[in-house]
Design a protein around this nucleic acid. Structure first.
Lengths: 125, 125
DNA sequence: CTTGCCTCTCACGTCGACGTGAGGTTTTAG
DNA sequence: CTAAAACCTCACGTCGACGTGAGAGGCAAG
């Protein structure tokens, strides 16, 4: 099928599909006039790609995993890589949670200040 | 004091201080030759700015808050703005938590596949 | 043949908090 | 007076997943 149909069937934009190709995630055949032609399996492959994007992975991470995941058989290496990405996500969530805590203490200080008139100095840490 | 001393005393880079000025967060006087001169109060002000950055706020958000926060007196409007940013942070944390859950289900599928040999099809949602 | 949609390849715009030179001026220590 | 810091203003690079035209060729139907 051509790119428009694949886009319609997967929910990805045409631009996104071309982008996936740029990232070597999805490489179609070309007709003599240069048009992209995808096999049926591309639908599932795009589904997997989008699943991984939605799971917070970068295109580079997806690229490293696809050869191990696309054939439907998992590898220990694949699981390690996935765990690595999960840890990265956890770290990021931890950072944001810390930021949220800092913001809360700023809010606490400001609230106290509003009620008592005392100056609030930001806590370091 | 000049920019180098302020940088040393606050832990911000010289470039960062110039950037804060670009964002109208910290506007120093200028000597006749164009060099920046900051008053003592700039040290605390930079501390507050960095605190807010560390709390995950954007320069625009900080800019809107500073006039209400720098004088040491909190405002209801300021508290509302802070709460808004806290909600934004919570939303972002929620997104990442969702991504983490999706990644976990991918990992579960792959793990099952590795153990049983059964194909894992990504779950939608 | 023509209309009209599909597709193609560039290639810049997005968003944010700076990092990092380039090239020139000012201040300060000796 | 001199040389080394410190300072100045541009202005591009970073990172990622596309969005959004521009300008042109391709394809099926009437």
């Amino acid at each position: 099928m051509r790119i428009g149909e694949l886009a319609a069937r997967t929910g990805a934009s045409v631009r996104a599909l071309r982008y996936y190709e740029e990232q070597d995630l999805l490489v179609p055949d070309r007709s003599s006039s240069g048009q992209r032609h995808y096999p049926e399996g591309a639908v599932d492959r795009v589904g997997l790609i989008r699943e991984l994007y939605a799971a917070g992975l970068s295109s580079r991470a997806i690229l490293e995993m696809l050869p191990h995941a696309a054939d439907g058989r998992a590898t220990t290496a694949l699981l390690d890589r996935l765990a690595e990405e999960r840890d990265r996500l956890d770290a990021r969530i931890g950072e944001l949670t810390d930021s949220r805590a800092r913001l809360d203490s700023v809010i606490d200080g400001a609230t106290t200040n509003l009620r008592t008139g005392r100056s609030c100095r930001p806590a370091t840490g």
